[in-house]
Write a protein that binds this DNA or RNA. Structure first.
Lengths: 132, 132
DNA sequence: ATGCAACTTTAAGTCAACTTGAGGTCAAGT
DNA sequence: ACTTGACCTCAAGTTGACTTAAAGTTGCAT
């Protein structure tokens, strides 16, 4: 596959694909003249990268999941990530609930609303935790 | 309040507070010599900013929430953010499940594992949907 | 055989949200 | 009165994830 085809099939710009290649997140299986040639499985890999990105992982973190060939099986690391994600989920869930409430709350200003006050306190707590 | 006190009480570095001040997100009520003097209510404001940040608002978006008389919060905008967060939660949930499974999966490489394949397919679907 | 769309490289630019550095001021505690 | 630690400004630097520009090469459809 030419890089343009990969771009079309993955929805990513070619510049991003080259960037990922340079970073070692994906690999071409060779060249046709100058041109990179990719195997079909690069799409699977890109899907995994996309998944990780959307979950908030940095490219470096994602890169560390890939070893020689195929995703690494550091099961302990995977579990730690899973727990991290679990925490994030909980945090986002209360945030979502808070926002939903705020959107529906009848109080004239949100500062008069007890739930909103709680939401603010939660935000401060999260901020403090993030900075440590 | 001196800026250092605000920093201590909010958990933010003074550099960030000056930056927010410059951006117009917070305001000092005056100066003591050179020094900015802040009112207590700046802490409430910072909490609101923290909340906004965590909900995925940019600083510019947050700035537009603060008007001449009190913060005016667009309930519709809140709902949209809540829905965005909802989507992220769903993604994180499948990622978490995928990781948990991967940690326990006996398959030699994850690409041989049916569950992992399902996870990838889901990722690709989400990716595709996000693009359109 | 040739035109050109699609590829190539390298370097620099962009954006948000801060952080850091240099050089200077000053309120307040001893 | 003096010291000093906390403040000040302004400019430049940082990070992550890309994007864009410039200048060159080439596979392939006609």
């Amino acid at each position: 596959m030419d890089i343009g085809i990969v771009a079309k099939n993955s929805g990513l710009p070619v510049s991003t694909l080259r960037f990922y290649d340079e970073k070692g997140l994906i690999h071409s299986i060779g060249r046709n003249g100058l041109r990179r040639v990719f195997d079909d499985n690069v799409l699977e890999r890109l899907a995994l990268i996309a998944l990780g990105r959307q979950a908030g992982f940095s490219l470096d973190e994602i890169a560390s999941i890939f070893t020689d060939d195929g995703p690494k099986i550091d099961r302990h690391q995977l579990l730690r990530k899973a727990e991290e994600i679990e925490k994030t989920i909980k945090q986002l869930t209360s945030l979502r609930d808070g926002l939903k409430h705020a959107a529906a709350c009848p109080a004239a200003t949100h500062f008069e609303c007890v739930k909103f006050q709680r939401l603010l306190k939660l935000a401060i707590k999260n901020q403090r935790r993030a900075r440590e």
